[in-house]
Amino acid sequence: MGLYIGDKMMKYEEWSKLAIKVSKASLWMLHFCTGCGAIEMPPVMTSRYDMERFGIAPMATPRQADVLLITGYLTVKTLRRVIQVYEQMQSPKYVIAFGSCTINGGMYWDSYNTIKHLEKYIPVDVYITGCMPRPEGIINAFIKLMELIDEGKARGWEKYQKYYDKYKENQRRVFNFEIEGENEEY
């Protein structure tokens, strides 16, 4: 550790192996329970599936969390909260999106106020398909995320920094105004 002290933003590849190992073995999640996917979380946390054995723990606030779970469909109103919460999280941070709603709007594809492609507004590292995904699927997604972190491919937060203007433009198109957030960093 200690390779990325200082002003300069270092590349993900330059991280020491230990830091990668550590950050993949302790993923703290914030579940943004807007959609029906939230109902799949309790079995994942409790004794049947027990996600804590992978070092995954639920957290109360975005400041403490590493992973943001978007559990299902988002409306325009909730998207704004999601972006606020995502920007309050502290990088490195990852996003796991649940179910087909986040991919293409799912069964609400023709609604006027749902968000069809979450990818356009915040970077998503792992999608879970299904409507709804089973707890095994969720655990699988976390394992996948760990693999991605290990391989250095879970770089959504860097993408968000790099293409911040593009993301903001997309967001603005939905809201018609800009969201103040962590933008000094970007």
Partner: peptide
């Protein structure tokens, strides 16, 4: 250092 406005209020701006 962030401003007071940037506070976690359950996602509420």
């Amino acid at each position: 250092i962030t401003s007071f406005e940037d506070n976690y209020l359950a996602g509420e701006p």
